[in-house]
């Protein structure tokens, strides 16, 4: 959480000449300022258009969680952000971005837009990785229709919303965990395209992997 505000911090220090204890306070102020800015920006609503043509409104800060959307907005080089709101909806040209999927995605980013940003200096990725999904995310992603679920994951991947892809991946991973291949097949509606001979051969191959390596 440091890098972005380093400028403010050093200025504050130079001006006051205070010992670095004030550093934290400045940092905190800068953080708060940025948060306020993000909050303001999120009041600006932009429009996203699904592959099926449905248009959905979404806060600007939230929409920028999609790296793809953020890049597109950057490309507009619009200085007056309020004008973005009046623009044509941003089209999302991928067949995974269905109405349903986009609706859910907007719901997700609207809930997560004020997540603390990822700090690259904080090298505790494992903390994040091992983290269980939050209660909200669990409910959000527990979608009965798996076509919709995969649409959301594929759409999130297309729109480059890493957090949401991760949520989806973890959800599926949790479902696979502890299941036999037959159960996995059943759960995910996958057709078994192996002949019995092929299956036997893989069993053998797997045994070898267990023993060796």
């Amino acid at each position: 959480m440091n890098g972005e505000y380093s400028l403010d911090t050093t200025e504050g220090m130079a001006a006051s000449g205070d010992p670095p204890t004030n550093n934290a306070v400045d940092d905190y102020d800068a953080e708060e300022a940025l948060e306020r800015q993000r909050e303001e920006e999120n009041k600006i609503k932009i429009k996203l258009k699904s592959f099926e043509g449905g248009v959905y409104e979404c806060g600007l800060t939230a929409a920028k969680m999609s790296v793809m959307v953020a890049n597109m907005l950057d490309a507009l080089q619009e200085t007056d952000l309020t004008k973005i709101a009046t623009r044509e909806p941003i089209p999302l040209q991928n067949d995974a971005v269905t109405n349903k999927a986009l609706e859910k995605i907007v719901e997700w980013v609207d809930h997560h837009w004020d997540d603390p940003p990822i700090d690259p200096d904080f090298d505790d990725e494992k903390e994040r990785r091992n983290e269980e999904l939050s209660h909200w995310d669990k409910q959000f992603i527990d979608i009965a229709d798996q076509g919709e679920l995969f649409d959301i994951i594929a759409a999130a991947n297309f729109m480059d919303i890493k957090g949401l892809v991760e949520v989806g991946a973890k959800h599926i991973c949790n479902k696979i965990k502890g299941k036999s291949c037959t159960e996995v097949r059943e759960m995910l509606k996958i057709h078994n395209d192996f002949t019995p001979e092929e299956e036997a051969a893989i069993h053998k191959e797997n045994e070898w992997i267990y023993a060796k390596d």
Binding site: K177, C181, I190, N206, I209
Partner: peptide, 9 residues
């Protein structure tokens, strides 16, 4: 877990 997934399809 991962190895068994080979048998899915």
């Amino acid at each position: 877990q991962l190895i068994d997934c080979k048998l899915v399809s």
